[in-house]
């Protein structure tokens, strides 16, 4: 479409096309809008320190939301990320009392990958709906974690300095967790765009039969995908426990629904085949700023959840309107 003929197109359709081609623009506008509202309500709140804090809290959420983004691209979902992150954090905090931090971290990521692998085998090989598979495994993991807790009652727990530095620390005002997150996000974004594995995810989500007929071994992709999702959730748990500094049996569980919300708001289609990680990161930032905004407004917990729910719904509905073919 050349610019000469664009004049004839009605402004509404042109706007929609623009929004469809640039899904990040409305999200960033929404994010900036929320920050402006916050600044108007509490003048002076938005400063360097606040921005650093917001980023610190958004990063574990964004990593968890990457699990949702990747699995949603194939038409799946991973509802076990909340408990997987908690398992990793708890295992790390209890193992570090007897092991070297690096070994404790390695031990703690093992159950995360195993849970992810089980999810992938169920979803990829036995063709169980990922929603059910991951819900079931989160139930198993919850019980398993409680059994594990009994065996380590006496050992106590600790947070290694390296993770505390990563989760809470700031260098010249810049949160240290960016050291981990920026390369991670770059790998995910580039991996989705440029590598064969990334394209396979889109292909399977778009039309699994077509992908299979083209010679893709879909089940292998799914198994690797969910194992990767488990690993990412484990990493998110380690960063989060470095931030919160109090390992518990339900540490990251409340982050599960926001992680789905962040991916959905970021424009990843729950049906698969459409979306990307860039939007998800902005979605995680939006949710974190929104939480601050609601805290500042002293909105009661109940009303906060109501608003949260309707915002997820409204943003998704807007996305459906914008992206569907006219």
């Amino acid at each position: 479409m050349s610019t000469g003929t664009a004049v004839a197109i009605p402004i509404g359709r042109r706007l929609r096309r623009f929004l469809r081609d640039q899904p990040l623009v409305p999200l960033i506008v929404l994010l900036v809008g929320l920050v402006i509202v916050l600044e108007v309500l509490r003048p002076g709140i938005v400063n360097e320190r606040w921005i650093a804090n917001t980023i610190k809290f958004a990063i574990p959420l964004a990593i968890l939301a990457s699990c949702q983004t990747l699995t949603m691209l194939t038409g799946g979902i991973d509802l076990s990320v909340g408990i997987v992150a908690t398992v990793s954090a708890f295992v790390m905090a209890t193992q570090v009392t007897t092991h070297d931090p690096a070994i404790a971290i390695a031990i703690s990521l093992l159950p995360a990958i195993l849970i992810g692998l089980a999810n992938g085998i169920g979803a990829g090989v036995f063709r169980v709906h990922p929603l059910i598979m991951t819900l079931g495994l989160s139930l198993i993991a919850t019980g398993g974690l409680q059994v594990y807790q009994r065996t380590v009652l006496a050992t106590g727990s600790a947070i290694p300095d390296s993770l505390a530095w990563l989760g809470t620390g700031r260098t010249n005002g810049v949160p240290n967790s960016l050291v981990l997150f920026v390369p991670l996000a770059a790998v995910i974004i580039l991996g989705l765009r440029r590598t064969g594995f990334g394209r396979l995810l889109y292909a399977i989500g778009d039309n699994e039969n077509a992908a299979r007929l083209s010679g893709v071994r879909a089940w292998q992709v799914i198994v690797v995908l969910y194992a990767l999702s488990g690993l990412l959730a484990g990493i998110a748990g380690l960063v989060y426990v470095g931030l919160i500094k109090a390992p518990s049996l339900s540490l990251a569980v409340p982050l599960l629904l926001p992680s789905v919300a962040a991916a959905v708001i970021g424009g990843t289609s729950i049906f698969g085949g459409r979306g990307g990680y860039g939007g998800t990161i902005v979605g995680a930032l939006i949710l974190t700023v929104l939480t601050t905004l609601l805290t500042v407004l002293q909105v009661p917990e109940g009303a906060r959840r109501i608003l949260f729910g309707f915002i997820i719904l409204a943003v998704t509905a807007a996305h459906v309107r914008i992206t569907e073919d006219s």
Binding site: L131, L257, V260, A261, V264, I270, F271, P300, E301, G302, A303, R304, R305, I306, L307, F308, G309, F310, I312, L313, T316, A317, V320, E324
Partner: peptide, 29 residues
């Protein structure tokens, strides 16, 4: 909401999970 928004059922009811939970908290803390 499912019909009007044309958003997949699973997303709508996920959002409503938050909403009804909030309503319950507003009725009894």
């Amino acid at each position: 909401l499912v019909v009007l928004t044309r958003v997949p059922d699973i997303v709508v009811t996920l959002a409503m999970l938050f909403v009804w939970e909030g309503v319950a908290l507003l009725i009894l803390r």
